[in-house]
Design a binder for these strands. Structure first.
Length: 253
DNA sequence: ATGGCTATGTAGCATAGA
């Protein structure tokens, strides 16, 4: 099974790139973040014509998540059970016997922001809920934009980013908390190039200067991690015209 | 150098992203 996750930063703008990518990469499923579309504006037909069924949960301007799969996603759940959140950041479904959790973790803005508090509260609720999910489902993949660079090697300039949002000890502890539930970071199951990142700022020519962070992840439960054959980041997508600031991440098992 | 760029909603800028 080939899984992917991609923060598209507007599905409306990125739809042609997505359709090209699906045709080329042929994943069994892809989880999208930051669709920024209300549900009635979701490009269902175009995606169906490309051979993918979709479930989605969106809102105007911000957030929005979707799961696209060759077979219809089943037993869909929206959001984090027991956590009231008007922001559309999580959608889950069964695809091919695997529980897919598509997540767009809050950014947090900065450590002194209310949004940072929200991020930590959100991650706490997410972790508690995932622990329950992992008891319900043997095979789980958690895919998406985590907005956390787990280690210094996931940051182009760890000194400059030390303690900053996306890299702070509390965020990294929250990420390790997810690992503690029994998930593996699929990317680190394999030897990877140095300076492997999944996001680069649009400004300052950050991509060309390799100034990025690895904040998009595919976490796999034990069985899936054991069977995982490959995990990579498709950085070529960042070279497109009008690229998303994030590149797709891929795991195959 | 707290700038730089992109997308959205909405009609000249404000907000958010990371």
């Amino acid at each position: 099974m080939k899984l992917a996750a991609w923060n598209v930063n507007s599905l409306k703008v990125r739809l042609p790139q997505l359709l090209d990518w699906l045709a080329r990469e042929q994943p069994d499923a892809i989880c999208l973040q930051e669709t920024k579309l209300e549900d009635h504006k979701f490009p269902l037909r175009e995606i169906e014509n490309a051979g993918y069924r979709s479930v989605f949960c969106g809102q105007k301007t911000y957030n929005g998540v979707a799961i696209l799969a060759r077979e219809p996603p089943e037993t869909v759940e929206h959001g984090i059970g027991g956590f009231v959140d008007p922001q559309k950041r999580v959608i889950s479904a069964m695809v091919g016997g695997v529980r897919l959790v598509c997540a767009y973790v809050p950014n947090g803005q900065s450590l002194d922001s209310d949004k940072y508090r929200y991020k930590l509260d959100w991650l706490k609720a997410f972790s508690a809920w995932l622990e329950g999910e992992s008891k319900k489902f043997d095979r789980i993949a958690v895919l998406g934009d985590f907005n956390i660079a787990p280690e210094d090697r996931d940051v182009y300039d760890p000194k400059a980013w030390e303690g900053q949002v996306l890299c702070s000890p509390a965020e990294r502890a929250a990420f390790q908390g997810l690992i503690g539930i029994g998930f593996r970071d699929s990317f680190r199951l394999f030897e990877q190039p140095e300076k492997s990142f999944s996001w680069w700022d649009y400004r300052m020519n950050a991509f060309q200067r390799k100034m990025g962070l690895r904040i998009d992840h595919i976490l796999l439960s034990g069985d899936l991690a054991r069977d995982c054959k490959l995990s990579r980041i498709d950085i070529d997508m960042r070279r497109n015209e009008r690229p998303s600031d994030h590149a797709p991440v891929i795991a195959v098992f």
